[in-house]
């Protein structure tokens, strides 16, 4: 399978001493890769460096063979992302927000915007200002913004954070549907159940270190649930450290 993302020895240390250390993993085309770890484990930092929001002290990121740290603009054409909270302009409508994002891509026209609004269930509210949206609607718009450019790789940081059960299911369904269309995903979460339901590969991250990367099948074969697998990994590796 073709490599979509290659992260090699990514290291970043913040002033408070926290950060990430030697994070390396690969994602192949069609994967839904889950980065599972507790809050503050380095998931968001890793994603921010991949998307160009932050800089690494060391290491490299390749997106479809393009060095993302050197040729950020070129690499950005291939990715869509939702990092932390959705980056949306509340004084604009949902359609206007998508239009602004779509402007950066020559091939993305109005039908794609409408398609995204339909797929995320926002077409009825397309011309409403985002400031009136609920948290779930904003999150769905954030997902639409990540997908609108027809990216090869979509990076989602805690996409279901703060959502109710229905909102969580909606987001998950959209991701699964897009994955079936061939889009590769990198998703972070601190909820093992979420990762278990969506992903085919999982990386366990704790205190800035990637402890293990395996297929979901292997993880569930080894332990009954991903939660148990996570605890086993964290416990065992913790003892070794």
């Amino acid at each position: 399978m073709a490599l979509v993302l290659k992260v090699d020895e990514l290291t970043k240390t913040y002033k408070n001493g926290r950060g990430i250390m030697d994070i390396s993993f690969e994602i192949e085309k069609g994967d839904i890769f889950g980065l599972l770890g507790p809050n503050g484990s380095g998931k968001t930092t890793t994603m921010k460096i991949i998307t160009g929001l932050s800089y690494a002290d060391k290491g490299s990121v390749q997106i479809l063979g393009i060095d993302s740290l050197e040729e950020r603009s070129k690499a950005s054409k291939e990715i869509g992302c939702l990092i932390e909270s959705p980056a949306i302009y509340e004084y604009l409508t949902a359609r206007e927000n998508l239009k602004l994002a779509a402007n950066y891509y020559e091939k993305i026209k109005t039908p794609r915007i409408d398609d995204m609004l339909t797929q995320t269930g926002l077409i009825k509210y397309a011309n409403e200002k985002v400031k009136n949206f609920s948290l779930g609607m904003k999150q769905r718009l954030g997902l639409a913004l990540a997908l609108v450019s027809n990216p090869k790789l979509v990076i989602l940081d805690e996409p279901t954070n703060g959502l109710d059960i229905e909102g969580t299911v909606d987001i998950r369904e959209i991701i699964m549907k897009q994955a079936k269309l061939g889009i590769t995903f990198l998703i972070s979460s601190h909820i093992s159940h979420e990762i278990e339901l969506m992903c085919n590969k999982v990386g366990i991250i704790k205190e800035g270190k990637l402890l293990n990367v395996t297929s979901m099948k292997n993880a569930l074969n080894e332990c009954e649930t991903l939660e148990k697998y996570f605890l086993k990994q964290v416990g065992r590796k913790g003892e070794e450290v």
Binding site: K74, A87, A101, Y104, L145
Partner: peptide, 13 residues
């Protein structure tokens, strides 16, 4: 408010 991320992550330097 973090909306700068909507631009930084797009293909523009």
């Amino acid at each position: 408010n973090g909306t700068i991320k909507a631009i930084i992550t797009r293909p523009i330097s």
